[in-house]
Design a protein around this nucleic acid. Structure first.
Lengths: 110, 110
DNA sequence: TTCATTAATCGTAACATTGCAATAAACAAA
DNA sequence: TTTGTTTATTGCAATGTTACGATTAATGAA
């Protein structure tokens, strides 16, 4: 049916999935990487950096913004985007806890 | 258009996105968590554990299997699934490198 | 062989995602 | 005000994802 049955899962599982989904598209990965690479805000050159149309980039930025991973501030005619350090940190805590579950239980089976 | 323009991005960015997408659904998160929790293989009770229909679970298992994160072995009438430790490890290396990019550059801006 | 059990596959409906052209909105400069 | 620049929004087409009923395949038990 195309819609996820979120009520079948725990809040934690849904949160993990939401964060993971944010990185489930290479354009959003590229945006985040570019933000870390230039080590400051990105003001306008994202469309040139990534080869997608302006409305498409805008849409990906909106998704990352809605999740709180990035924040934008208006600077004249352009908008400057950067990572939201606190939300990034808490996202990492959630994902790391999940990805590190193999270190708690390390069953060699099969 | 619904299709990702992978050719616009690096191999690394596409790999990160593929792994992240695997965890972009709570059912697949739940499957992985259950595999770690019981600390061994899961033989058949996944449909009861998670509240989705058998074909749906089978589909999610297939995705995780295609990515190499889990592996299944036939045991009589049932199939036993468990994490593939080596592929899990290399997936973690890729995702951790991405998620830890904030520790390399820690620009306070905006 | 026949029956029961379990998992995979097929087919399909409903909804989501991706991408972009066109347009609108917001602002600075002339 | 008008013009140019930049980003957001709208609308839509193409494709992908999710979910499950029905069926098939494979195996063990009777």
């Amino acid at each position: 049916m195309g819609l996820i049955k979120s009520e079948k899962f725990t809040k934690e599982q849904n949160t993990i999935a939401l964060f993971a989904k944010a990185f489930g598209h290479p354009a959003r990965v590229a945006i985040i990487q570019h933000l870390f690479e230039i080590n400051s805000c990105v003001c306008g050159d994202l469309v040139n950096q990534i080869g997608l149309a302006q409305p498409t980039i805008s849409q990906h930025l909106k998704e990352l913004k809605t999740l709180g991973l990035i924040k934008g501030s208006v600077e004249g005619t352009s908008v400057c985007y950067c990572i939201d350090p606190e939300n990034w940190k808490s996202m990492k805590t959630v994902l790391f806890a999940f990805l590190n579950e193999d270190t708690i239980n390390h069953g060699d089976c099969c």
